[in-house]
Nucleic acid binder design. Structure first.
Lengths: 228, 228
DNA sequence: AATGCCAGTTAAAAGTTGTTAAGCCTGAAA
DNA sequence: TTTCAGGCTTAACAACTTTTAACTGGCATT
């Protein structure tokens, strides 16, 4: 199982390093950024399972960053770490789609406990291990890159597998184009987008025998795997 | 749409009533129990979407209750409400499978914000949303972006679906222009407004075969989906 | 009735997606 | 080393979705 990727955006280098080292010791992969702008670029460039954001930072604060992130990714868990304990700030944090809000000072154990609660809830912990998905009448085995159904086994390519996996992880919810492109292709330029469309067409063909399975487009946003 | 069921287990009758009344006012259905034992019986007897548990209670404390609940239900969201702010207690809370841990005193707004964050994450909010609407003779399936009626299935686009959904949610009541624009377009500038008018015209065309269905304009405010 | 704003309608423009097929690259087999 | 096959990307075109524009008529206020 691959490690869980944590993006830490914190301008105080002491706390940043402390967090980073603690989480590394606990088996996470962490990336540390010093402000919201750098953080957003890192987010766009990589794949992260959870974000820890300081609120007050130079250049771009944590709330603005969270808003930008939520514009392309409604799903990634966000925890704010902040010295502000004002009620309005807490509320604002949740308004922009936070999953938790920790007020400094906090202990590393408490942070870890809250991260685990959020990760468990968001399905990151399981679905990183989840290997076999039921898609209507079909069975999709991610590890063996296999799609079984209607009497035939179809060997999937790597890209087909990655994309179908993301669709499964977001079943009945929108898989954002940008997010998928970043995850699979690492970059969301025009041509990768067209490549993705080609794979969507392929997957639709593979899944066409089950009427209850459908990959629908959400114009300008992405795709949704519908299962009933 | 059915209300969200909240089980509140709190031995302090003042706080208990306060919580209960506040949540009712906010549109939840709440059941109040005075200790863990009564709470567990209530949990077994009913269906709850989220539990708010005090930790220190006579007869059976919140941690024990949470453990018993988790033995039969690994999924239902649990939030602890407690005067204890000791680190070990917080950690113990998360160990028994809590989703959040609130230290008294807290404001009702903060509680609500944290409840919403947990409910969103656990998928309760979505699964509680209506997915299929009856519009006169027509049937509108939001998920599948489908409008069925008079012998034909019409595949709707994303924007058509979003707008029709808002109209349905506000059936026989005014859907404010601004609200709809912000919800669907994220911004209520002039051109988005004209775009919306174009979609209203389309929907009217799609629904024209049923005399009892009508989308009427409310001058200067918005539109109303009339069903008789 | 005149004015100014709001809404209805249509069509063209702009942008996104669906689909097919050709071309490119890479690693394995000959 | 050459050839081949599979997998992936690129290109091109068709189809579809959404936005913008322009023109028209309606509503409310004066």
């Amino acid at each position: 199982m691959s490690k869980i990727n944590v993006l830490v955006v914190e301008d105080d280098p002491n706390l940043g390093t402390l967090l980073s080292e603690y989480l590394n010791a606990k088996g996470f992969d962490t990336k540390l950024c010093v402000n919201g702008e750098v953080g957003f670029n890192a987010f766009k460039a990589g794949k992260f399972d959870i974000l820890l954001l300081d609120v007050m930072m130079p250049v771009k604060d944590g709330f603005s960053l969270a808003k930008e992130v939520r514009a392309t990714d409604k799903n990634v868990p966000i925890i704010f770490l902040t010295a502000k304990s004002l009620k309005e700030d807490t509320l604002k944090g949740f308004e922009v789609g936070a999953d938790d809000y920790l007020t400094k000072p906090f202990t590393m154990e408490v942070l870890l406990a809250r991260m685990n609660a959020v990760l468990r809830r968001s399905g990151v912990l399981e679905s990183n291990e989840e290997k076999v998905f039921q898609i209507g009448e079909y069975v999709f085995d991610r590890e063996h890159q296999l799609l079984r159904g209607f009497g035939e086994d179809r060997k999937l390519t790597t890209k087909e597998t990655d994309l179908l996996f993301l669709l499964c992880k977001n079943k009945n919810a929108v898989l954002e184009r940008d997010a998928a492109l970043r995850y699979i292709w690492g970059d969301d330029n025009y041509f990768n987008g067209r490549s993705m469309d080609v794979y969507i067409a392929k997957l639709r063909k593979y899944l066409k025998d089950d009427e209850s399975v459908e990959i629908v487009n959400v114009h300008g946003r992405g795709f949704k795997l519908l299962l009933n």
